[in-house]
Computed example of a mutant assay.
Amino acid sequence: MAEKIWLIIGFLAQGLFSARFLVQWIASEKAKKSVIPIYFWYFSLGGGLLLLAYSIYRKDPVFILGQSTGVLIYSRNLYLIYKEKKRLQFSSESKS
């Protein structure tokens, strides 16, 4: 039973991770230029965290290293986006 649950988690994680490319492609097509929307990073983080959990369960050190590095990068990008939005919000409020 546990093996089936982890297999489902693995497939769900891979689905989330793959969905980020679809989101990026659609956003770029709409903008007629290459764009990385914020949902790309959310899908990356969600898929990365689930894949990390799956790789820990499978005890795969190569996969663990790769996914943990990715999770740090996705988290950092979301933090930088959040920080920039706050800065722009503060800047526009102080001009008013």
Rank of each mutant, 00 (worst) to 15 (best):
S18L: 09
F21K: 13
Y42A: 03
R76K: 09
S34F: 14
F43S: 00
S96E: 15
S91H: 03
E3H: 08
L7D: 08
K59Y: 09
L22G: 08
L78I: 10
A2M: 03
F43Q: 00
P37C: 02
I81R: 02
L49C: 13
I64R: 05
Y82K: 03
V35G: 06
V35H: 07
R20A: 06
L22D: 02
V35L: 09
R87E: 05
W25S: 11
A31G: 12
G66V: 10
R87G: 04
A31I: 12
K33L: 09
S91F: 15
S18R: 11
S28W: 03
F43N: 00
D60E: 14
L52N: 04
L45I: 01
Y39F: 07
Q89F: 15
S34E: 07
S34K: 15
G47Q: 00
I8H: 01
E3W: 11
S96T: 04
F11E: 08
L45E: 00
K95H: 07
I64L: 12
P37Q: 11
A2C: 12
Q24F: 15
I26D: 14
Y74T: 08
Q89H: 13
L49Y: 09
R76S: 13
Y39T: 08
W25M: 13
Y42S: 03
L45V: 01
K95S: 05
R76Q: 08
L16P: 04
A27H: 09
I9G: 01
L12R: 04
D60C: 07
Q14W: 03
S44N: 05
L88I: 05
L88H: 13
S94T: 14
G47K: 00
K33D: 03
S44Q: 06
S68V: 15
G48C: 02
L52Q: 05
L65I: 15
L52I: 12
L50C: 09
L7G: 03
L50M: 11
V62E: 14
Y79Q: 03
Y74A: 05
Q89W: 12
R87F: 12
Q67G: 05
